[in-house]
Amino acid sequence: MSDDHGSSVISAQVRHVESLLESRGLLDAGEIDTRIDEFLAGGSPANGARIVARAWVDPGFAERLLADANSAIREVGLSMAGGLQEQRLKVVANTADEHNVVVCTLCSCYPIALLGPSPGWYKSEAYRSRVVRDPRGVLAEFGVELPAGTSVAVWDASAESRYMVLPRRPDGTEGLAEDELAALVTRKGLIGTAVV
């Protein structure tokens, strides 16, 4: 699904609708590309990593983040309001007892503003159909072996919310500065298909 669909039927349909909208003066030439570029601008896993690092060093921020992520991320200069309307963000925290993993089984919903465009595997039918049924098996294929006592919580982004995982802070990182901590956080860690 991350492939180039330039010659597909749907692409032809989209181009046709786009040209009709332009010919009726409802859309400027190239406006859709501009809007998409604006939407994606600044979207990067570095944003999610920055949020995580702040939560690791500031327990008060972590508490606010888990209670009301949309408000909390404004404290670090980020927002979920880059699209047509602000999207609700739900941050779920990994603990010693529970590991979280995010999926969109119906399509590919994803917090683009915080994580950038989603990876191809996230949009694959294999990931979307299998991770809800057998998350331990899928996580094992990603190299994540969870202790038997750790429960797994799968979050299906089936409606309007977007999800991000707050990974556990790795052992031995007590002396690191916030930006050094952020550098440890991976995109997979923010989706839940890796531990940090």
Binding site: S151, V152, V154, A159, S161
Partner: peptide, 11 residues
């Protein structure tokens, strides 16, 4: 089967 939970967002 399965010992995990799945949280779905539903109208």
């Amino acid at each position: 089967v399965g010992d995990h939970t799945v949280t779905v967002e539903l109208w």
